[in-house]
Amino acid sequence: MLEKRIIVCLDVRDRRTTKGVAFKDNVDVGDPVEMAKHYYEQGADEIVFYDITASAEKRGIMIDVCAAVAETIFIPFSVGGGLSSVADMRAVLLAGAEKVSVNSQAVRNPGIIEEGASLFGRQCIVLGMDALRDPAMPSGYRVVIDGGRVKTERDALAWALEAERLGAGEIVLNSIDADGTKSGYELAATRLISEAMGIPVVASGGAGKPEHLLDVFTKARADAALIASMVHFGTYTVRQIKDYLAHRNLPMRMEW
């Protein structure tokens, strides 16, 4: 049985992770490579790096991070943020990333999904989508871009389906309403999108405790769940979350 994936998300700026973290053991908490290794050893099924580097000149740094991560962890990892061309995609894939994630760039230029999928394979191309609750939209959710600052005229469900048709191999659905609340994932949106798609849907935004992952896997049928602060601040370990879910009969990877 295909297992539910737990994906740890790290925000990286200029080769440092940005969110505060509270590890007590000997982990350099600012170093993305060290942190990736830490979560790999805790049993994370996948790691996502979001490159939030402000300037284009510093983008190359992310390539070095990828190369170092690839030498250190032997599970899939992906990179998102700032990839605006297939050349950008190729660089991180050749550095060892398994997948690349496009978000605002794909809304501005949907062709990048198609181009990326034909060059590197659909399994490499992830659509990141930020959705905002909006009763005026047909599905009830509106696509927003640039970190949630800019509203688009796209409907979330319609855009997800279009991205799948263009060649996206996976969708990360990030709820702007739930993000940062720690009160649980946006279950209705996740379920709506997941049931409509033929590709895996990763839920993102709102995770605060293991129960939230249980809900999003069972009630919203997510294929994978993204977590960040609940492990970055040392509240839980990945192992604790997996134990909790495995005890409730969810298929999880428990040997690593």
Binding site: M1, L2, D45
Partner: peptide, 9 residues
Amino acid sequence: KVPHMGWNR
């Protein structure tokens, strides 16, 4: 869903 993507026993 196809492809079969992720971890399995």
